[in-house]
Design a protein around this nucleic acid. Structure first.
Length: 878
DNA sequence: TTGTAAGCTG
């Protein structure tokens, strides 16, 4: 059936004038004719025209009507398509009772749908085709697939693709590329394999795309096979293929192979250069990438926007702000600066080069600020430690109608983590739930990190357990979170679970070693050290520093020093860890020479380093040196002392018996002293038995931390040691009414890969009879040799016998006795206690070391005590 | 059809 349409011209009878005072664009007549083009309202009304055209018979040959040209519906639709007017084309196609149009017309409309990315219209066309009964041949099917894939409905496209069995390489490439674009590289590869099996011809596009897929999948062998295959077919003469190969080798970390390909390229195009620069930058070899940029510019090769963007990313990652600025200027001249991706990149460059103001300036000038722009700036604020400002920016972004995506959410979670804002973090968690972002691994990792940094490991754990897929970052975050939140046992047990599932990396080691350190779990630490040696993480400075710290905290100072000496370029953390190690072992002078060594190496101590050296001085009673460092910190290094530094000085004065000086020092502090500061003095009062000052100091402590059990117990101990039993009783009552519980003393020791834990007066250990018998044996021996037990440490107002019994039950004694009974002769006995060692136990440890001729290393909550031949390394400073 | 921006673990 043929349908005619009147084609309007400016010279025709009705003087149809386009674009002037028109009422409607076209009219359908009852006989199936169309009058198209704008109808001039003043010349004839629509109904008049309709009447006129209604009289024209269908069978009249076209030539009879000189002034009118009649065209088919197909042609009309195609004409609209050519003009890009999809709306009109669809209108004609969808008119009710329309005659069937040609397959090629459907193709034209589908092409336009694809170009305009109108899935909705495309689907309508597909349904018309279905209902019209037109057979979907290879050509029409291809167009349908093209439309669906271009419009992002890969599933529908695939259904058509599978039905039509097309042999066109283009269509196969389209499908492979379609899946690659949505990240389903596995499906891309499956189609590629099917393509090879079916004998479909492959071309350079196929190789380009497939190489990208194998790179993304990390399928090194398959990618290399493709390389061989394309060489066989001679596709290595195509630049695009070589460029893809370069990218592939960069992605599989074969940097040299990539460079070799580039070297062999005779005709390098801009993409070859860009691929090299971007490859180096993405591999973390930014300097090399920037060198290539310079080489590229010198060679006179063309540069484009992508060149600048890749190079700016390189500047950002290696902090080269001057080159970044030069590129920025160059880009402005080249008029690249109106491009959104460019602006975002340049802004990120300034932000990562610590020039936040530069970033803010670019941001302010940006015409359309996308979520990417906001995220880059928010991350910049967080990097500068301005987490509050970052959170403010986030709200401003939301108010401006910009919807946060997973990147923005991750950045803002990081801000909450740095700020410790659990409340804001929980709000973000709600947003994540409401917007179904829980499946994003970055979001979940950042969420766990936020909870861990805000101290809520329970929340972190529930996120971790609910994660559908966990990566190494997830595990590291949880293990590190447990370590830092005082849950070392949880950290270690999670580490054990982890290594059954995936291979740990250097960061895992740096996360788990502090857990070993805090438990003094030497055997476990050594095991992890072995793991590190086998897996080659020893070249990671963080790992070596953590190992030094672990060995120092597990009492193996010699080993710590040995590893420390092996670090080729020691950083500030390496030195700080070593200084702290010497400090906790009471080796103040060694700590000082390490400090001097560090300065000699040209490193500037930071506030943490000063805490270590002040701590070391205080634990060795080096009062003059301590003062010297306290002044050095302020005068030479311009570091304002924080609470921790004041606490060390107070500790130093208190331990050395300068109690009133300490008291005055606290009163003169420019910052408000906290309970720890007063607590240090209270400890000093206990060591030097100053009950009067203790009462004065305790008032401050109780006011600042009324809920802290430790301080009530401490004052009770001070009273008990002075045998002021009435006051002890009052303190106990005070503790009782407040519902406070004394933290039970507990000691542990490792033997044959097992940790044995002892609690004071606990008889549940299987060897309890032997252990208690041994303790009593030593007690009698000590008495015979004229030793009087330090009864005041028993803290019980009872008769002498009972006090003695209570002393015998102290956990550290039980652990030491267990060590003597179970560890081979000559092996050092290493005991760890959660509280400070008691004076009586300290005496017995000396005695035991002398009688058994073996070393005892006792780590309490404060420091190490090395007992050898009846002498302790602490020399009374504890 | 290859190269192009922001986010997580010590």
């Amino acid at each position: 059936m043929c349908v005619f349409m009147a084609k309007t011209t400016s010279t025709n009878f009705f003087s149809f004038m386009p674009n002037r005072n028109t009422t409607q664009d076209s009219i359908k007549f009852q006989n199936g004719f169309f009058l198209s083009g704008p109808v001039k309202a003043f010349s004839l009304s629509a109904s008049q025209l309709q009447c006129y055209y209604a009289s024209i018979p269908i069978s009249v040959p076209l030539t009879k009507y000189k002034d009118y040209e009649f065209i088919s519906l197909d042609e009309k639709i195609c004409e609209f398509c050519e003009k890009g007017n999809l709306k009109k084309a669809m209108e004609f196609l969808l008119m009710p009772e329309n005659p069937q149009v040609a397959s090629s017309t459907y193709c034209s409309v589908l092409q336009l749908c694809a170009e305009l990315k109108s899935l909705e219209d495309g689907q309508k066309v597909h349904s018309i085709i279905r209902s019209s009964g037109v057979s979907i041949d290879g050509v029409l099917g291809s167009k349908l697939v093209f439309m669906y894939v271009t419009c992002g409905n890969l599933r529908e496209g695939r259904l058509v693709f599978d039905k039509i069995a097309n042999e066109k390489t283009f269509l196969w490439n389209l499908m492979i590329n379609g899946y690659a674009k949505i990240g389903d590289f596995k499906e891309s590869v499956l189609i590629f394999e099917k393509m090879l099996r079916s004998g479909i011809e492959v071309n350079s596009h196929t190789f380009s795309c497939v190489l990208k897929c194998f790179a993304a999948l990390g399928s090194i062998k398959d990618g290399e096979w493709v390389h061989g295959y394309l060489l066989k077919l001679g596709f290595n003469s195509y630049n695009a293929v070589n460029n893809s190969l370069i990218s592939f080798y960069f992605k599989i970390r074969e940097v040299q192979s990539a460079h070799k390909l580039f070297d062999d390229l005779t005709d390098r195009d801009v993409i070859s250069w860009n691929s090299m620069i971007s490859g180096y930058v993405a591999s973390g070899l930014c300097e090399k990438g920037l060198e290539l940029l310079i080489e590229m510019l010198k060679s006179g090769a063309d540069t484009d926007l992508a060149t600048i963007i890749c190079a700016l990313a390189g500047c950002a990652n290696c902090g080269d702000v001057s080159l970044g600025r030069a590129l920025h200027a160059f880009a402005i001249k080249a008029r690249f600066d109106r491009n959104a991706i460019f602006s975002n990149t340049v802004m990120d460059m300034y932000s990562k080069c610590r020039d936040l103001n530069g970033a803010i300036q670019v941001f302010a000038k940006m015409a359309d600020k996308s979520v990417v722009s906001w995220t880059a700036l928010i991350a910049g604020y967080v990097r500068e430690g301005l987490a509050d400002k970052a959170i403010g920016m986030f709200h401003e972004m939301e108010r401006g109608g910009v919807v946060p995506d997973t990147f923005a959410i991750t950045a803002i979670l990081h801000a909450c983590a740095c700020n410790g804002s659990l409340e804001s973090g929980k709000h973000i968690h709600n947003y994540i739930r409401e917007n179904d972002m829980q499946s994003n691994i970055f979001v979940c990792n950042a969420l766990m990190d936020m909870y861990a940094k805000c101290g809520s490991m329970e929340d972190a754990k529930s996120v971790f357990l609910e994660m559908p897929v966990k990566d190494i970052v997830s595990w590291n975050t949880m293990i590190g979170g447990y370590s830092k939140n005082g849950l070392p046992n949880e950290a270690l047990s999670l580490f054990v679970t982890m290594i059954k599932e995936l291979e740990p990396d250097g960061r895992t080691m740096a996360c788990v070693l502090p857990a070993c350190a805090s438990l003094a779990a030497l055997d476990k630490g050594k095991e992890i050290h072995g793991y590190i040696l086998r897996n080659g993480c020893l070249y990671d400075q963080h790992v070596t520093n953590a190992l030094v710290d672990m060995y120092a905290k597990c009492g193996m100072l010699v080993l710590a020093r040995f590893l420390f000496d092996m670090i080729p370029t020691k950083d500030l953390v390496s030195w700080t860890v070593m200084i702290a190690g010497y400090g906790m072992h009471g080796l103040g002078n060694e700590a000082i020479s390490a400090f001097n060594g560090m300065r000699h190496a040209g490193l500037m101590p930071d506030e943490v380093c000063f805490i270590s050296i002040l701590y070391a001085c205080s634990h060795s009673g080096l009062i003059n040196e301590g003062w010297m460092f306290f002044n050095l910190m302020q005068n030479e290094c311009n570091i304002k002392p924080q609470l921790e530094h004041y606490a060390c000085v107070v500790d130093l004065l208190s331990r050395t018996g300068k109690l009133s000086m300490a008291y005055k020092f606290i009163q003169k502090m420019p910052i408000e002293p906290d309970a720890t500061i007063w607590g240090s003095l209270l400890c000093g009062c206990r060591i030097h038995h100053d009950v009067k000052l203790a009462e004065k100091v305790a008032e401050h402590v109780f006011e600042l931390e009324p809920e802290n059990t430790g301080y009530y117990v401490l004052l009770a101990n001070i009273y008990a040691e002075a045998e002021k039993w009435e006051q002890v009783k009052k303190m106990r009552e005070k503790i009782g009414t407040r519902g406070l519980k004394k933290n039970p003393g507990c000691s542990w020791i490792e033997a044959k890969g097992k940790v044995h834990i002892f609690v004071a007066a606990d008889h549940s250990h299987p060897q309890t009879n032997n252990i208690e018998a041994l303790v009593n044996k030593y007690r009698s021996k000590m008495k015979k040799e004229g030793y009087r037990p330090k009864l005041r440490y028993a803290l019980i107002n009872a008769d002498e016998m009972e006090k003695e019994m209570a002393l015998c039950g102290h956990s550290e004694k039980l652990a030491m006795a267990f060590g003597i009974l179970n560890l081979p002769p000559g092996q050092t006995i290493r005991v760890t206690k959660n509280l400070r060692v008691c004076g009586d136990c300290h005496e017995m440890a000396k005695f035991m070391s002398s009688k058994t001729k073996r070393e005892i290393v006792l780590r309490d909550s404060n420091r190490f005590h090395h007992f050898k031949d009846g002498i302790c390394s602490c020399r009374g400073f504890w």
